[in-house]
């Protein structure tokens, strides 16, 4: 096993959890077996092709047509080896699937195209966008769901992956034993910016994590509506399509939006974009597609409160 690990460890990412090696052991075993079988097949085929190459037309060939013994051997041995691999994989999966009872819960919401992580402290909700902060050496369970289409949460260094499904709660757990930042990917195709739906897991010492959480909780109570709107701009995923630079992307830029004349693909134009226009754009975006854009945005009915719509509107108004 050690030799296999030396030979093939270049194929796998670093291990940042204690459970990663459980998966890697199976990986090395199968790759060792595969390499052995492939080399044997290769040698035998090359040997036969050279040894039994056609020297002249009409030469006599062997007359063996079957061998029950051989058929049994190469039926039974693969069956045993293959089933053993499946059972090994299952038993490892059992260990990886069930989180310890004391695992620290973090809620994860996937949406096109952002990850939002929520923590609870003293009844207050703390949210981060694209940054999953976790303490080292503590079991963490992620309780995940999606607001729109399928996503999948994957951290290669942790060897975890699970689909994030609208209308369903799925979970993954891990205990990271390494400080540092690790890349996460969305691994279920989710549309235009699928490959930009990334996040980072920051593994930090326990005390640093606790301090960060307390500071965040304190900061979230004192901000103005437009500052909270700026947070929503990121957390609700507006950022994926609407820039703050004045340059249009998938959707119109937010900069200088208020007061602008808006012409639509269908229907009468709006002379100057106002709060009502923004509200309609959030709740029923397809009713007023601005000329030159595609109907890409889904309605945020049920996803944003009136309070939040007010905050984001204040934020957009502040962008001249």
């Amino acid at each position: 096993m050690d030799i296999l690990e030396k030979l093939f460890s270049f194929m796998l990412p670093e291990q940042a959890t204690g459970t990663a090696s459980i998966i890697d052991q199976i990986f090395y075993a199968i790759i060792g077996l595969s390499a052995l079988v492939t080399i044997l097949f290769f040698l035998v085929v090359v040997w036969f092709v050279i040894r039994y190459r056609r020297r002249r037309e009409g030469e006599k060939t062997g007359t063996i047509t079957e061998s029950h013994k051989l058929e049994i051997v190469w039926t039974v041995i693969p069956t045993i080896v293959f089933v053993a691999i499946a059972l090994w994989g299952w038993s490892a999966y059992r260990t990886l699937e069930h989180p310890p009872a004391d695992a620290y819960p973090i809620r994860v919401v996937g949406k096109q195209w952002a990850w939002v992580f929520s923590y609870t402290l003293d009844g207050k909700e703390i949210q981060t966008l694209g940054q999953l902060n976790v303490p080292i050496n503590r079991p963490i369970v992620l309780e995940m769901t999606s607001l729109d289409v399928l996503h999948s949460f994957s951290v290669p260094a942790f060897r975890v992956k699970k689909d994030v499904v609208p209308g369903l709660k799925t979970q993954v757990w891990f205990t990271s034993n390494k400080l540092g930042s690790f890349q996460t990917y969305c691994t279920e195709f989710c549309g235009t910016a699928h490959s930009k739906m990334l996040a980072t897991v920051n593994v930090m010492p326990e005390q640093q994590f606790e301090r960060w959480l307390r500071d965040e909780a304190a900061a979230s109570t004192t901000a103005s509506p437009s500052v909270l709107g700026a947070r929503l701009y990121e957390f609700k995923g507006c950022k994926s399509c609407h820039t703050l630079t004045g340059v249009d992307d998938v959707g119109p830029s937010f900069k200088g939006l208020v007061g602008k004349r808006r012409e639509f693909e269908e229907g009468a134009p709006v002379e100057a974009a106002d709060e009502n226009y923004i509200r309609r754009s959030i709740l029923d975006p397809k009713s007023q597609i601005v000329k030159g854009f595609k109907p890409k945005m889904n309605s945020f009915v049920g996803q944003m409160t009136d309070e939040e719509i007010h905050q984001i509107t204040q934020f957009i108004k502040s962008l001249h």
Binding site: L12, I23, I26, S34, I85, G89, Y93, R159, T187
Partner: peptide, 21 residues
Amino acid sequence: LIGGLTGLFLASMATDVQLHD
């Protein structure tokens, strides 16, 4: 042959977690 053998990695649930998608 290689296609079949690499299928084993994906048929085993534990390694599939890492390799899926």
